[in-house]
Design a protein around this nucleic acid. Sequence first.
DNA 1: GTCTATACGATGATAGAC
DNA 2: GTCTATCATCGTATAGAC
Lengths: 216, 216
Amino acid sequence: MQCDTKIKLLDHAERLFAEKGIRATSIRDLASAAKVNVAAVNYHFGSKDGLMTQVIERRLVPLNQVREERLTLVLSIAESEGRQPKIEDLLRALIEPTFEFAARLPESQPFLELVGRAMSGTDAQFREIFHRQFEPLFQILDTATQSALPHIPPQELRCRLYFAMGSLHSAMRMVGRKDTVLFPTSETSNVPVVTEMVLNFIASGLRAPCTREGKA
Amino acid sequence: MQCDTKIKLLDHAERLFAEKGIRATSIRDLASAAKVNVAAVNYHFGSKDGLMTQVIERRLVPLNQVREERLTLVLSIAESEGRQPKIEDLLRALIEPTFEFAARLPESQPFLELVGRAMSGTDAQFREIFHRQFEPLFQILDTATQSALPHIPPQELRCRLYFAMGSLHSAMRMVGRKDTVLFPTSETSNVPVVTEMVLNFIASGLRAPCTREGKA
DNA sequence: GTCTATACGATGATAGAC
DNA sequence: GTCTATCATCGTATAGAC
């Protein structure tokens, strides 16, 4: 199987990047962990940047596909019933897929943290991935939320969507944590709890009354 | 003046890190831009990590001091009037200082973007800075918001504070942008507008009804 | 103390044999 | 596809000039 090395590299890179950070993980460290040759990374991915991109996109592309499908479904149902979509349904289509596979596969939770960090980090390369992967999704969300909340100026609603993405990324960074600050007593997975809490938080933020020019 | 080199390095590093990302900025690039020797970074900061830390903390430490002072003031006023603090006042103490100096000094806006990114990024080192610098502030906020919103379970409120920080960091990454997506017509600074909008968003999110165990 | 020139080991990347 | 050898560049350390 020719893909074995490639997949091993992606798996180990995902884990090491999430644990130690991307900058602190060298290609030689990774090659040792995956038990492959040091040149394999450059052969399969062209560069370390190429590897990082594929580590992210391997998860992010199918995730955004599911998000888009569920968004489209919510919109078509609303249209067939001759009403505007509900904001909670739109947000559920965006947020639930994020955590669903993490709930099924606890070992994939480090990836959630990695994506949540990479999408907000300093590397210009990841900003590009974020914009490329989220542009179509964002267009749909932007239009849909305007329909759901017509009393909010489109410009402010668009800003709130960015705030919401910040909250969602915070939640993604949070799910792997078992520390005592956030979940002192829980022994079960906190994924379903975090999902509902962030959904609740964002929905309330998006519904807020319009911001006045002069302060409150 | 013996600090000239140090300050030049901090200034240029801040700008280059915000523009190209930290990983993509080499010490030699930085030394060329600042017109100093390559060894100057290691002499003044010990390492590139040390430089990055000081670039962030140079702004973050005084910012958090102002935040803490204003938080304490809000709490003492509320206590002297024999009432609980208002959540909007608490948030204003947290958020307004973030953008105030950016509004006065437009050239410092790239720094806001840098901090907003670094605090959420993949580098484990910055996570440490974030926790070290925010721990006392977070303790105050945690207690104060519990007083302001006693009907929300402390555990959920703590999570919401993390979501709020994600939104705030999103806003910080946003203020420097002059693109057409968010601010199509504005020619003036968008800083005051963003400040009020994110405050409004977060306040509404924190006030949300408690999340049920079973979904809505 | 402050700064410079220079050298060292490790890193990401590449070329060519197998 | 995989490997070894090699390269330019990176972050870092040191010795010494001012």
